[in-house]
Design a protein around this nucleic acid. Sequence first.
DNA 1: CTGTTAGCGCTTTCAT
DNA 2: ATGAAAGCGCTAACAG
Lengths: 322, 322
Amino acid sequence: MTVSNVVNRRFHLMSDATRARVEDAIASLGYRRRADGLSLRGSQRYAVAMVVVDPTPAFLADPFTTYLVAGLTNTLTARGYSLVLARTDLDRLGDAHFVRNRATDAICLMLSGPRAARARCLARVKDLGEPVVVFQERPSRWPEDVCAIRQDDRGAARALAKHVLGRGAQRLLVLVPGRAWPAIEARLRGFRDALREHGGRATLETLACGDEHYPETQAALDAWLRTHGLPDAILAGNDQMGIAALRELEARGVRVPGDVLITGFNAFEFWRYSMPRLLSARSPAYEMGAAAGEALLARLSEGAFPARERVFPVDLVPGDTA
Amino acid sequence: MTVSNVVNRRFHLMSDATRARVEDAIASLGYRRRADGLSLRGSQRYAVAMVVVDPTPAFLADPFTTYLVAGLTNTLTARGYSLVLARTDLDRLGDAHFVRNRATDAICLMLSGPRAARARCLARVKDLGEPVVVFQERPSRWPEDVCAIRQDDRGAARALAKHVLGRGAQRLLVLVPGRAWPAIEARLRGFRDALREHGGRATLETLACGDEHYPETQAALDAWLRTHGLPDAILAGNDQMGIAALRELEARGVRVPGDVLITGFNAFEFWRYSMPRLLSARSPAYEMGAAAGEALLARLSEGAFPARERVFPVDLVPGDTA
DNA sequence: CTGTTAGCGCTTTCAT
DNA sequence: ATGAAAGCGCTAACAG
C-alpha cells in the first residue's frame, strides 16, 4: 500500500524515511507499476485507439493522416494517455486485438469506402460501447457519444471552383481517387456548389485515378485526354493528383495555366516541390488531430464531448497554376 | 469458465447447446473480454510501443518514419498485437504512460540527437527490461536483447558520391539537417568513404539546414552560396533538402546538372514531383518496419531475436540531376 | 461437459 | 503512519 502511495505521489501519507526507503527500492529494482493491474482495478485504460480504414498497406502515405495522427499522439501523450494505431479493411475491423478485447477508453476513426459501408462501420464501432471521434465524416443518423471533426472541404472546394470559373473555364475535370473518401465527396459537392451558383453552361466531369499515386493518375489522365481532348481546368482532389496532372500536361507541351488551369488540395510540405506551384487549400490536419485529443480527454474526464461537431476552416493558398 | 473457453475457441470442451447459448449471450450483451484481466493473468500485454525521439511535433512528417510505422503496424495487427505510438524529447522519455507503467511487451526506438545522448537514451530504454528494436542505429556497446534494424545508408551514400566524383565534381557540398540523425551520420560517412577511395583533391563541406524543410534549407543554402560560390555537386541528406536546393539554384539561373550536380536520398513518392528528378536512393522503410514486427513476434514467442542486426540494401534510382 | 478455486497487481476502505 | 482485506476480470488447474 505504501508503495502504491509513493507511486501516486501521496507523500503526506508516509514519513520521509519510509518514502526514501521505498524510492530507493523502486530505483534499485527497476520497479514499474503494471498498467493492467491499474486498469483492472480502476477500469480506465489510459489509451485511445486510432483506426484508419484503408485497404492500402501504406495507409500513412498521405500527409493528411500523418499530421492528424501526429497531433493526436502529441496531445494524448502529454496528458498521460497512449495512442494505439491500426489500419484495417472495412470488413476486417474485428481482427484487431483492441477490438476483440476491450483495451482502450475511446476510438478515433478515419473511414473510407462507399457511404453506406462507412455508416455501417461507424455503427459497428459505436456498438463497442466506447466514445468515438470520427474524422471528415458527417453522420446522417447521429449516434450518441460520437464527435465528428472535419475540415471545411466543401467550402474550400467551392472557392477553388469559383476561382477557375471566374477565369473563364467552362469544361472542368475533377480528379478523384478510385476509392471513396468522405473528404473527396465533400470537395466534389463544393465544386458542384460553385458550378450551380455560377449559372451558365459550365460542365464538370469526374475521372477516377486508381490509387491516386503518380503513375496511376497520369495513366488515367492520359487515357481521358486521348478521347476527350483538353478540359479548361483540372480540379484535383488533392495535391498528389494535381502535381501528377501538371507533369502529364507539361510532358504533352500543354501550358499551365495558359491552356489549362489546375488546382490542388491540402498544401502540405511537398506542395512546395512542384513548379509551378498549384493553387491549393491548406489543411489544418495537425490541429484536427490535436482537437480530437482534447475532445476525448474532455469526454473521458467530464463524461460528455464539449461539442458534437467541430469544423475547421480551410484557406486557399495562392499558386501559379490557376 | 465456459465463457472463457468460448472466447478462446476451445469448443471441444462444451456441448453445441451451451456454446450456442453463450455465443447468443455474448452477442446480445455486446460482451468483450477485457484486455487488462487477460494481461494481468497471463502477463503478456499483446502490445508493442514505437517511440520516435524527435523534438518536432510533426515527427511523422518524414515518409521514412511514416512507412516504417505503417509496416510495423500492419505486421503487428495481423498477428494480434497492438502498436502504441509516441513521440518524445530525448530527456522526456519518462513522461509517456507506457514508460511509467509497464503496458507493452517490447519497444521500438527511432533515435535522434547527438550520438552520446542517443546511446544514453537506448541504455535507459533497455533498463525498462523489455526487448528493444532500434532503427538506423549501430550500437557500439551492444546490450542484450536488443535488435538493430537499418538500411545501408553508408553504402548507398558512397555510391552516390562516387557517381558525382566520376563525373568530375571536385567541390562537394553536403546538406544535413540541424538535428543529428543516425542515418544522416551514416550517409556522411559514406560520402567520405567515396572521397577517400577516389584520392585526388576533391573536398567536402557540410551545411546544416535547420529543420530541413523547404524555406530553411533554401535560406541556409542561399547564405552559403553568397560567401562560398557554387560547389560542383550538392549531396543532400534527403530528397526534401535536395529538391529545395534544386529550386534555389533554378531561381538563381544555375543549370542542373550542367553547372551543379545534385543528389537526394530515400526516393519516396514525392520524389517524383520535382522536375528534373533527383538522382537518389530508394529506402526500404516499409520493409524495415515489417521486419521489426516479425523480429519482435519471433522474440516474444521464441524467447530470442532471430538476429542481432539486420541491414537492408538501398538501391540507387536514376535521375536527371547528376 | 461444467463449474469451483485461486491468484495475477493494483487501489479503496478500513483497522491498527 | 502503516498495513490487512477485498475485489476488479481473467484463465490454469482441478473436481465433479
